[in-house]
Design a protein around this nucleic acid. Structure first.
Lengths: 342, 342
DNA sequence: CTGAAAGCGCTTACAG
DNA sequence: CTGAAAGCGCTTACAG
């Protein structure tokens, strides 16, 4: 029971690996290994060490661990925007998966701005995250190089890429856009407009799907496409709807690139006395909260963001452990939610 | 130009304080002090050191810093739920304030669960955050002690408390609830219902305000209060509205504790053919996105979550630096948004 | 105002 | 399968 020598002490009184080692009667390295679950430690020892650690209420110090191993216990997630409920759900799924695995989830919001993304990335990378989750593939070359140079494993979410050495979990935005347009055509619509905001890469991929489908049907008309760069919102959706319906040749269906626009359109229709779907069909994308409560209930495309978050986090966890990933390009599909507005 | 000795090296090739020191011709401690802005270093030296650091592209290692100083460069924020846009806006404001100050913001979502909150807190505290932001005051005694024992400075958001040694930024939920009820009374309403979900402390404080106001008017009737424990949502709001209006003596106004409930109610009214506000007035709380687009536009109480986030982060920053805080209990008020639904 | 020494609590790399 | 030594990159506490 010799107490520590009377040297000038900076000790925080914290219980350390050494305390556990002394209690268990082994060396600190063995404790370190036992607690991290390295296979090389004997069963009996592992049990004894874990007991001692629990007894003492030992909590490892992440900073010391990070310094010694030069790998931290947090994961960085870069998302475009939290005002879109889609990304909130994605984040929560990621967070729920990393938490129990012992990782903290750091969030960065890029606001769809490539420069902001790069700045955030620099900040994050300086903290040496154990892994990185980013949205999509569209970023500056410098940002890409920054990531590559860091050596931090990355998984991309929301889109997929079959490229070698690239890890992604998402679905085909293009095909989903195509499918929704196809549904509208099947309902007998001909003058189908595509109304979009924000114009991020995934929105443009949906536009591609729409275009391809309309061309296949011989019905493509550039005048029916309306792309607005500002963020999407209920108010903007209402405004776009009103203007589209005021045209000399109004559309008989409108495919909004996001549900908030479509919800705003439905509210505007109510106000303007325009009947949906008899006069014009309205469809959205993402199936966000509220779409099922709209009047009429909004047809949309359900995107599997929760599953994407979960699977992407799991994939990243494997990469971080240096394990093999069976399916580096994971397509989780989408689901057409056909409701009353089409 | 002596290269490092041929000892077994674990060096990550990283540029360290020592490299900067050598380049600037000073000792590492001086570099450390100069870069952290300690006053004791001479002007000329600071400039020389900063130059050298910039030249070399030096980036401090947060893990090493945390280990040596036993204080980290991140701040933990505990929020009840991200599906409520209110907290997303609050979080973004906090994040925007801490980022430039050199702190990472770690988020924890409690889902209004005291046990989950305590678990999150243990996780966070083990990482020794430099500061802590928590929502409200309602938590288990053990959780409270955990925080106190950690010595980490804390600021509470959304509610205020004048207690000594307690730091808070928010507004009076009670007064806001009272004010909205008062507005409904002024509009000539008498049978004013209070419909709530989730039943978190702040919702109950709003209920208190409602009750006090109704009692003052001699109109309080317990039958007009409906408290449901499940999370609030558009769907639940619609359901509660329909049931309230089916009663033998329906209310002539309904105060929903949150805008999503009220928005759901407005949509249900449209569907049921119930006129708002002529037949029944509907009001919400928080003034969330979409309320202004509703039909009719929804009366609500605008809560200053962005300002709360910003001011709370600033207050915490001062506490973290050991500076004096002028106003430990900061009331930022609220604003009645009177629109067409009342 | 500047510095040499020691230490923060862990893990890596080398042995046996 | 277990351990003694060294080191990760910084800051604290003590001197001058």
């Amino acid at each position: 029971m010799t107490s520590s020598p009377a040297r000038r002490s900076r000790s925080s009184g914290r219980i350390t690996l050494h305390d556990v080692a002394r209690a268990a009667g082994v060396s600190p390295i063995t404790v370190s290994r036992a607690l991290r679950g390295e296979r090389s430690v004997g069963h009996a020892l592992v049990a004894r060490v874990k007991d001692a650690a629990a007894q003492l209420g030992y909590v490892p110090d992440p900073a010391a661990r990070a310094l010694a191993s030069s790998r931290s216990s947090h994961v960085a997630v870069l998302l475009p925007m939290l005002s879109n409920q889609l990304f909130v759900e994605l984040f929560e799924a990621v967070h729920r998966t990393f938490g129990p695995a012992g990782y903290q989830t750091l969030i960065g919001v890029t606001h769809y701005d490539p420069h902001e993304e790069e700045q955030l990335l620099r900040d994050q990378l300086m903290h040496r995250p154990a892994g990185l989750l980013v949205t999509g593939f569209d970023r500056r070359d410098e940002t890409r190089q920054l990531i590559a140079a860091s050596g931090v494993p990355v998984v991309h979410v929301m889109e997929t890429s079959p490229a070698a050495g690239v890890y992604s979990v998402g679905f085909s935005q293009q095909r989903a856009g195509h499918a929704l347009t196809h549904h509208l055509l099947q309902r007998g619509r001909r003058r189908i407009a595509f109304a979009a905001a924000q114009l991020d890469p995934r929105t443009l991929q949906r536009a591609d799907g729409y275009r391809a489908c309309m061309r296949e049907a011989g019905l493509y008309d550039a005048a029916l496409e309306w792309l607005r760069p500002e963020p999407s919102s209920l108010a903007l959706g209402g405004e776009m709807f009103a203007q589209l319906m005021q045209r000399k040749q109004p559309p008989d269906a409108i495919f909004f690139c996001n549900d908030d626009l479509a919800q705003g359109a439905l509210l505007a229709a109510l106000q303007l006395g325009i009947k949906v779907p008899s006069q014009v069909a309205v469809a959205g994308f993402n199936d966000l909260p509220g779409s099922e409560q709209m009047l009429p209930r909004l047809t949309s495309v359900r995107t599997p963001r929760v599953e994407i978050g979960k699977q992407a986090a799991r994939m990243l966890l494997r990469l971080m452990r240096g394990e093999h990933v069976e399916t580096p390009c994971l397509d989780l599909g989408y689901e057409l939610m056909l409701r009353d507005s089409t």
